[in-house]
Computed example of a mutant assay.
Amino acid sequence: MGKLAFLFSGQGAQYVGMGKQIAEEYKSSDSIFNEASEVLGFDIKKMIFEGDDETLKITENTQPCIVTTSIACLQPLLEKGIKPDVVAGLSLGEYSAHVAAGTMAFSDAVALVRKRGKFMQEAVPVGVGAMAAIIGLDNEKVIECCNKARDFGIVEPANFNCPGQVVVAGEVKAVEKAMEIAKEAGAKRAMLLPVSAPFHCSLLKPAGEKLAAELEKIELKDMNIPVVTNVTAEYILDKNKVKDLLIRQVSSSVLFEESIRKMIDDGVDTFVEIGPGKTLIGFVKKINKDVKTLNVEDLESLSNTFKELGY
């Protein structure tokens, strides 16, 4: 019998109306949206179900909206008694993974990621930083392109997503230069991403410092399920390591491809992405096309996942 992993969506997957069908059908999911509104002091359900893309795109809104939707989409699986062997998330998704693992209370996580979004946005003034996806070069080549562009400012690998897809982040001029060098080196595409800050690079260190102060106020519990962390692509079962890893995660590269390979090597053969979009299972398929990939974001995908898992 193979193992089951739950993956949780990252920033950029948001859309108006996400999670609405599931919330209308499942009381437990609806109550997650209500709890988030209570914790944050505004109607997040209205923002997600009836808002507009521009409001959802603001980082300090995006982060709690995605975590709330992901944990709401998780509820029907929990009701059926479906428990994964391991959990992981892409960047922001790691907070949802910790809620699923029992490390962090949902109320703490949703308040924390709203502040995390704010700190990440404040760390670099709008227009100073950028992120770009480099398609068609291996990891080492992209690192080389970043090193060659350093004369123009800070540029670093931010996300190692899947074979042939690496995201870089840093100062605008340096990112543009790295894109140019990448194209000369044979990249199929190099494109700027529509984000408001250069996530997962050293420019975000001040955000990590502010996040550290907020994490101090939160009590973590022992996890029931191992979490594979972005920073090291290793399993963690010790709650005492979690805060340091979440602080470092803000300004460190996300080792997503390595994390997935680790789980597959360990016998995981089914991955379920929980929350908006199918970006993560798209990456998984590019890493290993033989594993089963499912997602849960609406009633159709939920029903399909139940069926495929034999429930």
Results as ranks from 00 to 15, higher is better:
212 A>Q: 08
212 A>S: 14
215 L>T: 11
216 E>H: 06
218 I>N: 10
219 E>C: 07
219 E>F: 00
220 L>Y: 03
222 D>T: 03
223 M>T: 10
224 N>A: 15
224 N>E: 15
225 I>L: 15
225 I>D: 14
226 P>L: 04
226 P>Q: 05
227 V>I: 09
228 V>T: 12
231 V>C: 13
231 V>N: 10
232 T>F: 05
236 I>C: 14
237 L>D: 09
237 L>G: 09
238 D>M: 13
238 D>I: 09
238 D>A: 12
239 K>F: 04
239 K>N: 11
240 N>E: 11
243 K>L: 12
243 K>I: 10
246 L>A: 13
247 I>L: 09
248 R>C: 12
249 Q>S: 13
250 V>N: 11
251 S>Q: 13
251 S>M: 12
252 S>I: 10
252 S>D: 11
253 S>I: 13
254 V>M: 07
255 L>C: 09
256 F>R: 02
257 E>D: 06
260 I>E: 04
261 R>F: 01
261 R>V: 06
261 R>H: 05
262 K>L: 03
263 M>R: 04
263 M>Y: 02
265 D>Y: 01
265 D>V: 02
265 D>I: 02
265 D>S: 08
266 D>C: 01
269 D>T: 10
269 D>E: 13
270 T>N: 07
273 E>Q: 13
274 I>D: 10
275 G>W: 03
275 G>Q: 04
276 P>Q: 03
276 P>G: 01
276 P>H: 00
277 G>R: 02
280 L>E: 01
282 G>F: 04
282 G>A: 10
285 K>T: 04
286 K>N: 14
286 K>Y: 00
287 I>Y: 02
